[in-house]
């Protein structure tokens, strides 16, 4: 089951050229850019691991593309995303975020139903892949 988080996630995978063009767009707006990694696909998992520090004041996408390539080489079977942060006063928030790498196979989520009193049902989703410890997921 394909995880759909961030922008463009309902589209086919972006090519490197398309990713580069998005980065150029980000830089042309003066946003800073950061790369993040995780192997926990749960939608509530908002704090991903940082890959290096955020990059500020870049003029050209080459530096980001190089970091990205490095990151994907280290974590070929992880989710990798790019976050663009708009620091301008009044906004100060993530301006664009999209996934640029994902595991080859995504086994998806299991829905657990827990029966409570008075016929209430509590729902919980669990990623199948998250059963393995961090760093050992998506191995097969």
């Amino acid at each position: 089951m394909r995880v759909t988080q961030g922008a463009f996630s309902f589209l086919p995978e972006l090519t490197d050229e398309e990713v580069r063009a998005q980065i150029e767009y980000v830089l042309s707006n003066g946003w800073s850019i950061a790369i993040e990694v995780t192997d926990d696909p749960h939608p509530r998992n908002t704090y991903w691991e940082m890959w290096g520090l955020p990059m500020f004041e870049l003029q050209d996408a080459a530096a980001v593309m190089a970091e990205l390539a490095e990151c994907k080489k280290t974590y070929p079977q992880h989710y990798v995303r790019l976050n663009a942060y708009d620091a301008s006063y009044g906004r100060q928030t993530t301006a664009l975020s999209f996934i640029v790498n994902r595991p080859e196979s995504e086994p998806g989520f299991r829905l657990d139903r827990t029966e409570l009193s008075d016929r209430q049902v509590r729902y919980q989703i669990r990623a199948y892949s998250a059963d393995a410890p961090v760093g050992q997921r998506y191995q097969g």
């Binding site: 990059m55 500020f56 004041e57 870049l58 003029q59 996408a61 080459a62 530096a63």
Partner: peptide, 14 residues
């Protein structure tokens, strides 16, 4: 190393 790399990144394309 990180300090130098950061400057290099800013200079890329120029």
């Amino acid at each position: 190393a990180p300090k130098t790399r950061e400057v290099l990144k800013r200079a890329m394309g120029g």
